[in-house]
Design a protein around this nucleic acid. Structure first.
Lengths: 131, 131
DNA sequence: CGTACATTCACGCGGCGTAATAGTGG
DNA sequence: ACCACTATTACGCCGCGTGAATGTAC
């Protein structure tokens, strides 16, 4: 707490994750703990990022998607050009998600139809065997 | 066509799958082509099964789940059990998809907020540089 | 001789788990 | 000297295949 950094163990307890997961996130460039010798020290920034990562995970967002989104959050204080780029990337992500959502909806509608067909079939069979 | 069987190549063209996929399905016991020497010959039964496999795939049903459904088809004289099983699996998939859709929507809303923040930032910067 | 089939081994993604091994600090 | 913690490297798993290399039958 002294320097507003946390060890890997403290992070694990605070966020209920394993050390392996944190090292993995670092290797995938989602977290950037500073080093004291060999040991990792996680900053407030890392904690903010991890919070978002875990929330995304609950939402089913892949780490790679999350990394891109987090990179956007960082670009916040950049210059106008960077800001415009960040907006462009964010919109692209948004478009991807919309597309995903639409495809998912199509498959869901289709599956709903299929369930009706199954149920109708079942009704028919039961009537047939009752007759 | 003679004996109502098809070679692997004919199957691939008919169903738009690769030979590798068909061999893979056989190795996982979803298809049971007869052998003529080394060659696989796919029967009408294999075709019916493959059709269901591919439809299930579209709905996100795993091969293992699909195998279990297909197995019921064999042991079930009346097909009623298979239908009920299929309905159960279909409903479960539907529930999963609904959940996925909701989670995706949450993330999308979140990202939309972030985009607004970026846009506001950009507006601020542009006003600042204009002043 | 070519071509279509066959086999087996390997690799890839996602997201870590799980050793195995070694170093460090108190 | 011990213990708890840390580190690194690297292989394993699941689902669903793709691709390469090699062999064989027509």
């Amino acid at each position: 707490m002294e320097e507003d950094v946390m060890t890997i163990r403290e992070m694990c307890e605070a966020f209920d994750v394993t050390p392996r997961a944190l090292r993995f996130y670092e290797s995938k460039e989602l977290l950037f703990p500073i080093r004291e010798g060999q040991k990792r020290l996680f900053t407030r920034r890392d904690r903010a990022r991890l919070k978002l990562i875990l929330r995304g995970k609950r939402y089913g967002v892949s780490l790679e998607d999350m990394r891109q989104i987090l990179d956007l959050y960082d670009t916040d204080d950049g210059e106008t050009g960077q800001l415009q780029r960040a907006i462009a990337v964010a919109r692209e992500r948004m478009a991807n998600m919309k597309s995903e959502r639409e495809q998912l909806q199509i498959v869901m509608d289709d599956l709903a139809d299929q369930i009706s067909v199954f149920e109708q079939s079942l009704q028919d069979k039961m009537r047939a065997s009752a007759a």
